[in-house]
């Protein structure tokens, strides 16, 4: 078997952002389901949180190829 350990590292690094994205959208869905009129307030917060979590995952992806 051949391959590079970088990809294993990326796989491990993707766990955290995966869980984070799940938590963010779970909270967002909960909030909108309880109070549909709060959607316009919650949406930017959810998207910014998603962007921050996703940035970490993509950092891992890029560093797996660069390093």
């Amino acid at each position: 078997m051949t391959g590079t350990l970088n990809l294993v590292g990326f796989g491990l690094a993707a766990i955290g952002p995966g869980i984070a994205t799940g938590l963010i959208f779970a909270a967002y869905i909960n909030g909108v389901a309880r109070q549909p009129e709060a959607r316009s307030v919650l949406q930017p917060i959810a998207f910014l949180g998603f962007a921050l979590a996703e940035a970490l995952a993509l950092f891992g992806l890029v560093l797996a190829f660069v390093l």
Binding site: S40, V41, Q43, P44, F47, L48, A51, L52, A55, V62
Partner: peptide, 24 residues
């Protein structure tokens, strides 16, 4: 420079996301 570039890219992208979706 690669690391600096990656950090600049991430901050630019998050700024752009804030402009597009977070500015309400």
């Amino acid at each position: 420079f690669t690391l600096i570039g990656l950090l600049v890219g991430v901050s630019g992208a998050i700024y752009l996301v804030w402009l597009r979706f977070g500015r309400e």
